[in-house]
């Protein structure tokens, strides 16, 4: 058997991969039968296998609202903007962090950058509220009032929220990605820079022709992985940071918040599995496509 012989030849690599394969199998593949629940009407007595098939019945609610397209559009647009801004800023931040020579300062900046990631979204929601509270918030009380401007009812004005959510998301996640890029930059062979300095290349030139090209594989991987989740919104951000204010829906409703509300109204958990499956399928198709393109351009940077 050629397969077996090949595996035997690389048995060391196989053995190294086996614990991971097993863990993924237990954690992810064993429960995968739950995907069928998206097409079933779960009955506790009949169990997962015995419950009746209902075809696409569970998916209907997703498109029942005439806002369905608006919701999908929001989800994709927010994710796209977040991805773009996050990548550019994180790479920039990583490069700047790498430039700091003083160790103490460097440690301080790096630590500060990832701090926001430790705070749960519930607390982030309260912090945002501290700024935007219509009666006592910093912005209305300490900025608009002294300037003799009308206070703004932030939680009733949808127009501001695309910006607010982008700021909050960037604040929370940019440091995290920057650390990944920083790890990549640190791994770059110093000889490249030595050679460039000897050639008299400016800092800018070093950045654009050494740093960025050399961390491109990391950028590609992070982007590819993000593309797979383009249909999945960060529920915490859109639910907690907006304090679940209904009046902001016009600009802040995304798939995950819509599904959550549907669950609240009906209590039918079957709805969640169908929505999740749809999100996965879309992400899957997108990643396969993008990966195909990446593969055409540079084989080694593709996911598989």
């Amino acid at each position: 058997m050629p397969v077996l012989r090949q595996l035997l030849k690389h048995r060391a690599l196989v053995i190294l991969a086996i614990p991971g394969i097993i863990m993924l199998f237990i954690n992810n593949y064993l429960p995968m039968f739950g995907i069928f629940l998206a097409f079933k009407d779960l009955n506790y007595t009949k169990g997962v296998w015995g419950s009746d098939w209902v075809g696409l019945q569970n998916f209907k609610f997703l498109f029942a609202s005439n806002d369905a397209w608006m919701i999908i559009k929001h989800t994709i647009l927010y994710n796209a903007v977040f991805l773009l801004i996050n990548t550019v800023l994180a790479v920039l931040l990583a490069i700047l962090l790498n430039e700091v020579r003083r160790k103490v300062l460097s440690k301080f900046f790096q630590s500060a950058a990832i701090l926001p990631n430790f705070v749960s979204m519930v607390i982030v929601g309260y912090l945002v509220y501290g700024f935007l509270n219509p009666e006592l918030g910093f912005i209305n009380k300490s900025i608009l009032e002294p300037m003799d401007k009308e206070p703004i009812a932030w939680y009733a004005e949808p127009d501001y929220w695309p910006y607010i959510l982008t700021i909050v998301n960037t604040w929370k996640t940019v440091g995290y990605s920057a650390i990944v890029y920083l790890a990549a930059i640190i791994g770059i062979d110093q000889e490249y820079y030595e050679a460039a300095r000897i050639d008299g290349a400016s800092k800018w030139k070093q950045m654009t022709s050494i740093t960025v090209p050399l961390i491109t594989p990391v950028i590609i991987i992070l982007t590819l992985l993000a593309v797979g989740r383009i249909f999945n919104a960060d529920f915490g951000l859109f639910y907690q940071a907006t304090m679940a204010s209904g009046m902001l829906k016009e600009t802040t409703e995304v798939i995950d918040t819509y599904v959550y509300n549907a669950l609240l109204v009906t209590g039918d958990t079957g709805l969640a599995s169908s929505a999740g499956l749809l999100q996965s399928v879309v992400g899957f198709v997108l990643v396969i496509t993008v990966n195909y393109v990446v593969k055409k351009i540079s084989k080694e940077n593709a996911l598989f």
Binding site: L24, G34, I35, L37, G276, S280, V287
Partner: peptide, 15 residues
Amino acid sequence: YVFFTMLFSGGLLPW
């Protein structure tokens, strides 16, 4: 095999 697990999941009950 790895990538597939990042997108698809069986949900809370099977888990």
